[in-house]
Design a protein around this nucleic acid. Structure first.
Lengths: 219, 219
DNA sequence: GTCTATATGAAGATAGAC
DNA sequence: GTCTATCTTCATATAGAC
């Protein structure tokens, strides 16, 4: 073991302890909140997973609700990027929609907890994310809706109700994270067939969206 | 007011008080559990909505968990009937799938609380409905899957992964109950355009399913 | 800045009168 | 069978030593 790092180490960059602690707390909180939502989560459990005393959580975040809000903020921020990357007028709808579906399904698989926390927040009536839903999300859906309409106008796909198409895509993809337990139970999974399940899900959802919207194969 | 009913009334049919009380408790419990799931629900709140003292809930149902289980049982029982009515080999898939989608969307609109309670239970990891998922539901999906495959074999629709098709249908329809708050926020609803929203949802989901599965119009 | 030990309040459950 | 009053438990939050 190289112990020289002790000597070459910076004399504690300001906020480095804070940054590591808050990062550990946020990661632990995402895991715990994803299991049973806000109410079921216990501050003591989050503290234990973060490897810190319970009092530190209150020191850094004040209340349970503010910690939960910080986790939600994290999730929502990353949420919008995938859509902005794929749903752009320059792409052909075949590429855009299949790419978006694939990205959403991959995210549901890699980071199911984030989707579940968001789902739980909506089920509760969205007390905390309501401003986001009515503001930023609504504007994004309107903008993406105009992209869809431009594709329809160019004859690249059928006319559809754009917002409802997004509701459908979100529902079909996020169900693999949110209701994962149901899917495993019905398919009788022991975890061994994960790759086939993912492939079948991708094929099914992509086909429903592309053929369902009458998207012509890209030239 | 006709007070003669006091005299003509039966001398209290056995169990009628019990039946009315348990029905009131179950109805109140479904409303309260649908708002924030098991953990967030308060026995005092259910009692208040049922118009009964809190102790009566414990008298009739023992614990909060058993009351919750009774509500879930109610929901799950009604759950399977719609599927059994529509997904049968005698029907043409165009009629069967569109009828099933319409029934699920109508249910999501009329009884959104039931869908939300089930969603919350799945999000928690399905501690109580797991036996149902692995047993009855799994068998039903397998049976309905054979119906789908028979339609494909007869050339009435494309070959699809039947279980994933059902996951997609459930997701797209139940999202209108579970994430109702998000849909209203994005569409900017004040409750005035409910009928148009329902019509657009039905049209969009039906088109995605029928065209997505390559179902030919019924002869 | 960090953590132990404790206060405070709330919710599920029950004892016991009616 | 019904309900009031109370017990018990436990989770959030904080006070105060280090």
């Amino acid at each position: 073991m190289d112990t020289s790092a002790i000597f070459t180490q910076e004399p504690s960059e300001p906020g480095s302890v804070r940054r590591e602690a808050t990062a550990a707390i946020l990661a632990a909180a995402e895991r715990v909140f994803s299991r049973g939502g806000f109410e079921a989560a216990r501050m003591a459990e989050i503290a234990a997973e973060a490897g810190l005393p319970k009092a530190n959580l209150h020191y850094y975040f004040g209340t349970k609700e503010r910690l939960y809000a910080a986790v939600l903020e994290d999730i929502v921020t990353q949420w919008l990027d995938a859509a902005a990357e794929w749903i752009v007028p320059e792409r052909h709808p075949a590429e855009a929609l299949s790419g978006y579906v694939r990205a959403k399904l991959a995210d549901a698989r890699v980071r199911p907890g984030a989707s579940r926390i968001f789902a739980g927040e909506l089920l509760r009536g969205a007390p905390l994310v309501m401003p986001f839903l009515r503001g930023e999300l609504r504007r994004r859906v309107e903008a993406m809706g105009r992209v869809i309409e431009s594709w329809s106008a160019r004859g690249l796909m059928d006319k559809v109700a754009p917002a409802h198409l997004f509701f459908a895509i979100w529902a079909m993809t996020q169900t693999y994270a949110d209701f994962d337990v149901q899917i495993r139970a019905v398919l009788g999974e022991d975890g061994a067939h994960e790759d086939e399940t993912f492939a079948a899900a991708t094929a099914t959802v992509t086909a429903l969206v592309l053929k369902g919207c009458g998207v012509h194969a890209a030239a």
